[in-house]
Each structure stands twice: as C-alpha cells, then as structure tokens.
Design a binder for these strands. Structure first.
Lengths: 150, 150
DNA sequence: CTTTGTGCAAACGATTTGCAGGATG
DNA sequence: CATCCTGCAAATCGTTTGCACAAAG
C-alpha cells in the first residue's frame, strides 16, 4: 500500500509532474483497474465516499498524464474516450454485446510484418482490435442483457 | 456513370431503404472516395456547387446506411468520426504526423489466430491499425507541417 | 515567492431530437 | 395515401476554457 503510493509519487515526479492529491488519485485509480474507464467512471469512483476531484480536473490530470506518456487514450466505441495506464504495447478485445474491454497480451498473436505495407508507407507501430463475445456473453449469446433492453 | 447510379439505387432498394436524392448523394460520395471523410467533409463536398443536403440529414442518412451494413464508422483519432463505404474486411493505416488514413488490404498480413485468445473469450473479427508515416511525411519526417506549427 | 493545479461555471463543437411540411413507394 | 425523409432549430452530451483562489516546490 504505502510502497505503491510511494512508487506512484516517484513515477509522477520522475516525469516532472507535480504531485497533487487529485493527480495521484486519478493515476492510482487507473493503475488499479483494467477496464479502461471513461472520465465519468473515474469521477464517480473517486468521489464515491467523499469529494476528491472535479470533472475539469480529471480531464486536465489525464491530459498531463498522457503528455508524459503514463496514460494512453483508447478509442474502441463511438463517442467514448477510455483511458488506460497500461503503456506496454498490447492489443484489445471488445465484447460486441456488452461493450466490455479487456487487454490482450502482446505476444498472444504472431508478429505482424510491417514491411508488407505498400512502398511509401512507413509502419512504426500497430495494434490489433478483436471483436467478439466475453465470458458472460459467450455463454448465452442470444439472451438479452440489461444493456440491450433499454 | 448512369450504370453506377443504377447500381447504387438497386443497392439501396435491396436493403429496404427509400431512395432519396440526399441518401443517394451521401452513399455515392462515400463510394467515390477512399479517405474516410467526416460528416463535415461530406456536407461540404455535397453542397459545393448548390445545396443538396442539410447536416442533420447527413447524420440520418449515415445512420440508415450503417444500420443496413452498407457503411461503417471508423474510429482512429480522438473526437473524429469517419465513415467508410468499403465494407470488405480490411485494415487501416494512420499517418502519425498528418492524420491521413488509408486502407490496407486484408491479405497484406498473416492471418491472426483468434483461437490464441484466453479461454472464455470468443473472437469473431479483428482489425489491425498501423500507425506510421505516409508518403509525404515519410520523405522528410522532421520538417514541420502547417498542422504542427499552429 | 513563483509556478502550476484546482474548481466552478460558461463556452464550445459534434451529434441528436422534435416537429411541420414534403417526397417516396 | 400511408409511411418515411428532410430541414430547421433547439436540446443534449462530452470536452475545453477563463479566471480567481489555493497548493506545491
């Protein structure tokens, strides 16, 4: 606990960011979860017990964290920006039915040969996005869920 | 010309969509270009010479086309929804510097083995997104562009 | 003490919606 | 002629911004 907190503080400092309670909370929250939350989810989670941060501050914290490379934005569904503190290269799985998102380890798939691109294009990085059904939805793929029945 | 127009009309009808000038124009425009335009780009292009459609109608046309599977939405940059009438499976290349987007043929890369996913996940489709430098930006990757110097 | 971050509220831009009139099949 | 589409404007939603005050180094 205390160790992790110190590690987070050191990470923030090493990137030249001031350590504020809000920034710490946002980054710690992102590190503690793997579901790639939206801004609203982060805000709700942080202020669950008592007010920690405002919405505008979450945005500004995320921007600061993104600028120093500690956090990345994930675009998988329309109109939804999600955030991810896992900055290792990795792929994404997105459940077509419930929208759940999960990381896929980089070495799950064969390497992709970027040299296969047509001449003129210089490939630098890539990412695979897999669409499918998650554990829950795969079991009974045709049963309606709370989401699918508004 | 006339043939293509008829083909488009038949396609729309076969999907149960009413053929209106606006809907026709939106779909024809999308089919004629490969740059995955935004709503604003479509609107500007259509109304270049004389008014053809309103913004709200473009949105509704795109939604109708998307619902019947003739058009797909492409999410590659934050805050920008682009549209694509190429419904064949394919990958995308996105220029890191100028934001240009280009299709990559499906068979450019090795197939990805979706069975490699962890047990519980059912992979159905996937797509590879490559980030890199396009023709223009690859030649002189460090020269500033109009975009990078506001 | 200087610089940077926070919170609030207003501003903003892309997308959606309600509704009356018009076109389609 | 019943149904669906269009266009306009207002409403909505996520995100950004301006500014006064507070906190960090």
């Amino acid at each position: 606990m205390q160790e992790q907190a110190n590690a987070i503080i050191q990470t923030l400092k090493s990137k030249g960011l001031r350590v504020t309670p809000q920034r710490f909370a946002v980054y710690a929250n992102l590190l503690s979860r793997t579901d790639h939350p939206t801004v609203e989810q982060i805000l709700t989670d942080l202020n669950k017990d008592f007010p920690v941060s405002s919405q505008a501050t979450i945005y500004s914290s995320l921007q600061a964290l993104r600028e120093v490379g500690l956090v990345r934005e994930v675009l998988l569904q329309e109109g939804v920006s999600r955030y991810d503190a896992n900055i290792q290269p990795h792929h994404h799985f997105c459940c077509h039915q419930c929208g759940a998102i999960e990381d896929i380890a980089w070495n799950t798939f064969e390497f992709i040969e970027l040299k296969s691109l047509r001449p003129g294009l210089v490939g630098q990085t890539y990412e695979v996005t897999v669409q499918g059904l998650c554990d829950a939805c795969g079991v009974s793929p045709h049963l309606p869920t709370a989401e699918s029945v508004p």
